[in-house]
Design a protein around this nucleic acid. Structure first.
Lengths: 161, 161
DNA sequence: GTCAAATGCTTGTAGGTGCAAGCATTTGAT
DNA sequence: ATCAAATGCTTGCACCTACAAGCATTTGAC
């Protein structure tokens, strides 16, 4: 019994709904935040990581890890957020190659303003749809898949959460 | 006890890994297919829907539903696939407004050629990471969320799978 | 101390997606 | 029969992301 070269019906029943989710959920997340706050979900997530830092700052590489982004992508995003006054770049004190991203007062205000709507959106479309036991199930499933997508655990979430 | 305006720690433990998955998994799906076949995952999925049709054809609207795409997006994708000879547009016989997309012989060959690598990729990063009981858990979770994202069930997968 | 390799980041470019606007056809109410 | 509304699709543009290439600094082997 070798593994078939195409999906089995059982695999398909699991994979197709997940693939649908991968299309629809990011779209909904972006749509709400862009409509209400002119932020992409990635923008919001990056800003919220910065807010959670005690010093309100993170090295580019660290922020890229926490947001699961490539460095070029983060660099472009930071450039745009910088132009809007939500963050600024600051040379890292201990390494002349490195750059810290610092969230500004205005950036913090923006996150605080955007949070309730975004959280309500995630609850409405995801969390409230789940039974209590499904929270843990989803967590375990996501973590298992992430462990494969990021075997070295470079993306912080794999380790931390 | 009102619901907090920010995520609770428990919510965060579920949501953050899922959000990470939404970033990393589509990237991996596209990367493999683009590298090996010069197809996006969306291209592949659309072509594979067409292959599964008895007549190898679908109305634009129907294909958009099955692929969870907006119509403009599908239209752009079909234009590109058409230029590469994988599909062609055919006026719908029964409605002069409508267009059928037909997969060509070459398109079918392309899907057949691309399938083993793509399926292996999905197995490696997703399906093989799951325990048997997690298949059903993931299916149920995905379907619950999809039911919210698409309440009218316009996206075929919500109904059919 | 020297220099090749590794690290940290930026920039340019090509390509895909969302939204708004637009056109043609069909439907349905009258 | 008429015509406004709905339907089916396309196009243009603005925006975002991936990848490759490049520059500066640091590390580590010698």
């Amino acid at each position: 019994m070798s593994t078939p070269r195409s999906f089995t019906p059982d695999e398909r029943r699991t994979w197709v709904p997940l693939a649908a989710l991968l299309e629809l959920l990011p779209r909904q997340l972006d749509a709400q935040l862009i409509r209400d706050e002119e932020l992409t979900h990635f923008d919001y997530f990056a800003l919220s990581m910065l807010v959670l830092e005690p010093e309100h700052r993170l090295r580019m590489t660290a922020l890229a890890s926490m947001t699961n982004a490539t460095l070029p992508r983060l660099s472009h995003v930071v450039t745009r957020l910088e132009k809007r006054g939500f963050v600024r770049r600051d040379p890292a004190p201990d390494d002349a190659r490195a750059t810290d991203v610092v969230i500004t007062q205005e950036g913090r205000r923006k996150v605080i303003h955007a949070t309730p709507g975004h959280v309500a959106n995630v609850r409405h479309y995801v969390l409230d749809a789940l039974e209590p036991e499904q929270f843990e199930q989803l967590r375990d499933i996501a973590r298992s898949v992430l462990a494969r997508l990021d075997p070295e655990g470079r993306m912080i979430v794999t380790r931390q959460v």
